[in-house]
Amino acid sequence: MTDKTTDAGLRRLWVNAGLPALGALLALALWWLVTIVFSIDPFWLPAPPDVVDAFQRLSGHLAEQTGVTLIETIVGFAIGAIGGAAVAVLFAASRTIERMTMPLIAAVNAVPKAALAPLLIVWIGLNTQAKIVMVVLLCFFPVLVSTMAGLTSVPNDLRELAHSLSSSWWQTFLKVRLTWALPQVFVGLKVASSLAIIGAVIGELTNPDRGLGSVVVSSSQSADTPLAFAALTLLAIMGAGLFYLVAALERILVPWARAISS
């Protein structure tokens, strides 16, 4: 009995952690092999040891710039997510406000955000705030749209139940709609978590004073491709980390969602 449960536990560990790790290792090996077989110059495509070397050379610098980008990303993500969800609740409460502003917001969202980066510098300045605003701009819309979809997706039988109990708007909102919307909200949060990093990097490429984006810019200026790869690796890890953090939060907060959707 206990043997069986540990067996199942080991298998789950293998599927959830072992297989992804194996896949990553195989990809690394392939990358290394390609650089050796075709004897590629590290200037074009550095081999894994070159990147490790770059990490060692500038570990302090990289750690500091990672911290900068991480803070921009997380602050911007939090503001964008809370803002998007709050506006969605407002729209759910008032159809008039929704009809008046939603097309406008959709139109503004359709503007490529990267094109706004120089303007943000004019308006806000050469500072961290401009980069955070870029992150907010990218995170806001997906959370808004997914929260609205969640709030309006309450099934008819639950609506009718609330109606038959003469439940007030607030009671229905708090006891039924809000929780019902959570799985969809998390869809938006996951999309926004990846966009947040993109936003931070767009800001840093436009104003390359600090952050991993500026490391990429300066490394390309000094032809240090391994350093650029090191920065990109850190960005990828950060993005994946944020995504899985949101996914873990989802598992804790809405454990029932997986059960009813499968």
Partner: peptide, 10 residues
């Protein structure tokens, strides 16, 4: 009582 149970899944 409705055709479907209409229970809150959480």
């Amino acid at each position: 009582v409705f055709q479907r149970p209409a229970l809150l899944p959480w």
